[in-house]
Design a protein around this nucleic acid. Structure first.
Length: 208
DNA sequence: TTCAATGATTCATG
DNA sequence: CATGAATCATTGAA
């Protein structure tokens, strides 16, 4: 079942009791290619804490259902035993009854797995989104980038080498340099008036 | 707490 | 694939 694999892969659900056949977990770890560096440690432990919380709730609910299922089963068995005094009841009939009950509770558990799976997916996407870990660049870094931008205002498109150089000097990645220039260009164009002050500022700085 | 600035992502284009 | 545009999510100052 896909749901089980998913939950197991996230460490939410343990192996099925009774020794289910273990299916190969296909790693869907699509490396984002970009600056998705595994710069965790703190972030990651936070992630795992929340994952553990989900796991705890999951097992809690699972136990609850299992217990309820057992209770209900014995209850029904007792009823059947009473009835057996007034009419014949075959073992087949009892077995069928038990199966029906188990199927019902099983479908409830599937729902539980589904909602747990959903919660894990949401948690994952939230932690995978780098926009949530945004930090502003250092003052000097923006200084360097602005200096380049305004001294190449007629053609603010740094070559790959220039990007690498800027990245090195700013202690950021080339992707971040590209992002910065992408944002800068469009935001400069958006209101030239205000940006003009900045342009003058950097022009003066260069002259001085 | 509000809000502009800002870094990152998504989507369309060529 | 690089870019522009729109949008998202966080930061930092008012």
């Amino acid at each position: 079942m896909r749901l089980d694999n998913m939950l197991i892969a996230e460490g939410v659900a343990g192996p099925e009791k009774g020794g289910g056949a273990g299916a190969a977990a296909n790693a869907s770890a699509a490396a984002s290619g970009g600056p998705g560096q595994p710069e965790n440690t703190i972030e990651h432990s936070d992630y795992r804490a929340k994952l553990a919380q989900i796991r705890q709730i999951y097992h809690q609910e699972l136990d609850k259902y299992e217990q309820a299922c057992n209770e209900f089963t014995t209850h029904v068995m007792n009823l059947l035993r009473e009835q057996s005094r007034t009419r014949p009841i075959t073992p087949k009939e009892i077995e069928r009854m038990v199966q029906i009950i188990h199927r019902k509770f099983n479908s409830i558990q599937v729902q539980l797995k589904q909602s747990t799976c959903e919660a894990v997916m949401i948690l994952r996407s939230r932690f995978l989104d780098a926009r949530r870990k945004r930090r502003n660049f250092s003052k000097q870094a923006t200084e360097i980038l602005n200096e380049y931008f305004y001294s190449h205002l007629s053609n603010p498109y740094p070559s790959e080498e220039a990007k690498e150089d800027l990245a090195r000097r700013c202690s950021i990645t080339v992707s971040q340099v590209s992002n910065w220039f992408g944002n800068k260009r469009i935001r400069y164009k958006k209101n030239i008036n205000k940006a003009q002050e900045e342009a003058n500022l950097y022009a003066a700085k260069k002259a001085g």
